[in-house]
C-alpha cells in the first residue's frame, strides 16, 4: 500500500515495576504511549490526524497486545467522561509464550480486530505483555499507524468460483470480512478470463484481444539458462 503512515509521537516504552527500584521484578508488562493530537502540520492543515484505521508493527517477543484509546474532548463532553477505552483486548501475538512461534512476526491490527473505530482520538496506549520469564526483552518494532484499513478494492475473482450451485439457485459466498466478492453483474458474462465463444467468433477485433490476452498470460516455464552469454567459467565463489 502506498499510503503514508500517520505522523505521531511515539514515546519510549515504560516497564511497569513495583516502586522499589532496586529489587528486580519481572512484571511482564510494558506501556507505550502515542500522542496524536499535538502534531503540528501547517502544510496540510485540512488533514485530520485523529483517525487510525490500521496499526502495523514487527513483534519482538510480545505475547499479548492491548490497545487503549483516549478520545478528544468535544464541547459537549462532560467532565470525567474523557476516559481510556479498550479498543483491542489482549490480542494474542505468540500462541505459546514460551516458544518462538510469532515472536518476530509482522502483524497488522485492522478494523476487524478493534472493538470500535478509532475516530476523533487524541492518544493511544499500547500495553505489551509477556508473561513468560524466559525472554530477556520484549518490545515492538517498526510501529506505524495508517489512516484507513487496508481493504484495497476486492480483487476480481471469476464468478464461477464464487458461485455455489444449490438446488434452489445460485448463492454467493461471502468473503471473510463480510464483503461480497465481486461477482460479474450479468449472467451471460460467462467465465471471466475465458472468453465467450460466440462473441469471439463474431469479430476479429476480439480475436485480436484474445491473442493479446494470451500474450499477457505467458507461461512461467523457465528455460533453464544458467550461463551468461554462453559462458559459465567460474573460479571462485563470492561471499556477498
Amino acid at each position: 500500500m502506498s499510503e503514508r503512515p500517520i505522523n505521531c509521537t511515539i514515546k519510549q516504552p515504560v516497564l511497569l515495576t513495583i516502586t522499589d527500584t532496586k529489587s528486580e521484578f519481572h512484571s511482564g508488562c510494558r506501556v507505550l504511549d502515542i500522542s496524536l493530537s499535538n502534531v503540528v502540520n501547517p502544510e496540510r492543515k485540512e488533514e485530520n490526524v485523529d483517525q487510525v484505521g490500521e496499526i502495523q508493527f514487527k513483534n519482538y517477543y510480545v505475547a499479548y497486545l492491548t490497545v487503549k484509546a483516549k478520545f478528544k474532548s468535544g464541547p459537549d463532553t462532560k467532565e470525567g467522561e474523557n476516559k481510556w477505552r479498550t479498543c483491542v483486548k489482549r490480542m494474542r501475538l505468540m500462541p505459546n509464550a514460551h516458544a518462538e512461534t510469532g515472536s518476530q512476526d509482522y502483524f497488522c491490527v485492522s478494523r476487524k480486530h478493534m472493538a470500535f473505530e478509532l475516530v476523533n482520538i487524541s492518544a493511544l496506549r499500547l500495553i505489551l505483555q509477556q508473561p513468560s520469564p524466559v525472554w530477556k526483552d520484549f518490545k515492538i518494532e517498526e510501529l506505524r499507524f495508517f489512516k484507513c484499513s487496508e481493504t484495497s478494492k476486492p480483487c476480481l475473482l471469476p464468478s464461477w468460483l464464487t458461485e455455489v450451485t444449490n438446488n434452489s439457485g445460485k448463492k454467493k459466498i461471502e468473503a471473510e470480512d463480510g464483503n461480497n466478492f465481486h461477482v460479474a453483474p450479468k449472467e451471460d458474462d460467462g467465465i471471466l478470463g475465458i472468453s465467450n465463444l460466440e462473441l469471439l467468433s463474431a469479430t476479429l477485433q476480439q480475436l485480436w484481444a484474445l491473442s493479446e490476452e494470451v500474450a499477457a498470460n505467458q507461461t512461467n516455464v523457465v528455460l533453464g539458462r544458467y550461463e551468461v552469454d554462453n559462458c559459465y567459467d567460474i573460479n571462485l565463489l563470492s561471499y556477498t
Binding site: 475473482l157 468460483l161 478470463g193 498470460n217 505467458q218 507461461t219
Partner: peptide, 25 residues
C-alpha cells in the same frame, strides 16, 4: 470451496498458476 480455508489472494495466485501452466491449454 470453503470460505475460510483459502484467502482471495491465494485463489488468485492459484488461478494465475493454472492459467500459465500447460493444463490450461
Amino acid at each position: 470451496m470453503g470460505e475460510l480455508l483459502f484467502s482471495q489472494w491465494y485463489v488468485q495466485n492459484l488461478i494465475q498458476f493454472l492459467k500459465s501452466s500447460q493444463i490450461y491449454t
